[in-house]
Design a protein around this nucleic acid. Sequence first.
DNA 1: AGAGTGGGCCTTTTT
DNA 2: GGCCCACTCT
Length: 656
Amino acid sequence: MPIDYAKELNEQQLAAVQAEPGPVLVIAGAGSGKTRTLTYRVAYLLEQGVSPDRLLLLTFTNKAAREMLGRVGLLMPLDSSLIWGGTFHSVANRLLRRHASMLGYQSNYAIMDRDDARDVINACIPAAGIQVKDKRFPKGDVLVEIFSLAVNTGRSIDEVVRQQYAHFSEQIESIRAVQQHYVKRKKLNNSMDYDDLLSNLLCLFKSHPDVADVYGRQFQSVLVDEYQDTNRVQSEIVDCFVKGHRNVMVVGDDAQSIYSWRGANFANIMDFPKRYAGAKVFKIEFNYRSTPQILDLANHSISANVRQFAKNLAAVKPGGLKPRIMPAMNTSTQAAFVAAQLLELRDQGIPLAGMAVLYRSHFHSMELQMELTRRNIPFDITSGLRFFEQAHIKDVTAYVKLAINPMDEMAFRRIVLRMPKVGGATAAKLWGKRVDLRETAAAQFPDQPMACLKLLAGDAPKPARDEWNRFAMLMQQLAAPSVVNKPAELIRLAMEAGYEDYLKSQYENYASRREDLDQLALYAQRFEKTEDFLADLALMTEVDVDAGRSMSESPDEVVRLSTVHQAKGQEFRVVFVIWLADGAFPNARAIESIDGEEEERRLFYVAVTRAKDELYLVYPQLRLSGNYGDAFQRPSRFLKELPAHLYEKMETGEEY
DNA sequence: AGAGTGGGCCTTTTT
DNA sequence: GGCCCACTCT
């Protein structure tokens, strides 16, 4: 049965869905049916005769892509797995695995997460001959950010430091030296960081126009979601994909651009019509999500920003309650209020799963987590640590990584650092020896890639000898061709060879960590190649992880706790925004510049527009701050900007 | 002297 | 959980 587009979509959505081929920009206000529009656009293109494997859908999370493509599958008979969809990073990874050798990598390259990048950079500081003590030299954490911004915004290190890290401008030479070491080291370790995935793809396209051409022809049509949060490299990648035919639809909302701090370029969406001459611009401005009261507040708040497309987001829903502002005595009354209110709303028939608590920074959730635990209110939290970044997961995957990429220095380092009397210096020494020994060992034992580990036992500190030998034996076992591409088996073997005992001895919550690892092994079973498994883990977003978890547990009765950033794209019947104190939200460091303040305001806008029916804006008036006694908190400037008729102020309660 | 380990203190947002 | 600093071991 053909799809009746006119019946399923409103006029604005319909116009965008049925737009002629060519460059198209869709400005989609919050809750305006952006996903719906993209989904129907995909279906429409397929109906027009584009074959599924010639469509490319770039999204902000892998989950978003899966959901959209799944919905297309419901609209029409189709094997939606044929459509290319996912994050920029995961699509880049798929392409780079095929063409790694053109860029001087092996196709089994490792993907470094942020911690890995920081560690390698820290190791590069002494390697570049820098005496950290002489002057204040930036730490790995800061350097990751500087390097990353330089790549993602297409600026030089000089520019980034001078513009955003002026206090380090005297050390620019040294910073550049560290970066050069970092770049070399990554290549030596056959590893790419997140930024490399994007910039190497762009580099591939630019240095091999024939390859770019192949993909330009393969993908007849490219769709990009959340375009307001793309950075310069990403927008250039899109440009390369569509250079031949210009069939590109980008969708986004400038009012929800919240990632400029990691290089997202607001100008991408603002200037799209200039970059793509003749681009059609569509606006979809009917909000189906929120009550008029919530939307009034959101619209008023965002109107204080100067840089934006003029738009008029109108509510479709009938009236509801005014948003409520709750000044809590202090942070514990804040937590108690939220907990009590959650229970009351549940009694009124709103399931916990329809409610969320949002905040600016992860640590703002600590007190609430304790309060919810105390009251037995189940919650799910998109924590600061991604699943893959927890120590026990990283420990076990280090064995897996080393098994398939013997040059993975970070994996090696992680494993040996857990041995007694081995710290950073010894780990570095052992790695150096290992690299030297590789050739000799390869000649002596040609079919045993891990043989050189055994030869190093004498170089490990005495108390670590036994463990070293077990490690060498394990690695030999893991690298055997019969198991190396069975990731679940690798995990099981590593657990049995001693990691499980280590977990037991080390952690109070051994059982739950053990469970995580069982889950991980289970998940690993579906992969035919170990490198696919590792790439999937590294490129998984927190939201993707939750999608997996809620399939196994009952998703119905848990409250969601999340940063505003991670709540992007989601909606809830009831939303609490907590810690709305000036300095916390907006964050004190973020508002040092005007642009920063506008971005914080957009973040506030994103937070409030997650709410469908009820919105609670909460802040503590007092905060216990360690040694300095209580500190008074000013309410967020975003609350002060609101005229009183837009909200209802609640009584400061003391007990809940 | 160099390296490893343990205690106290802080925490912006993320692929 | 990570970083810095002080203490201890080789």
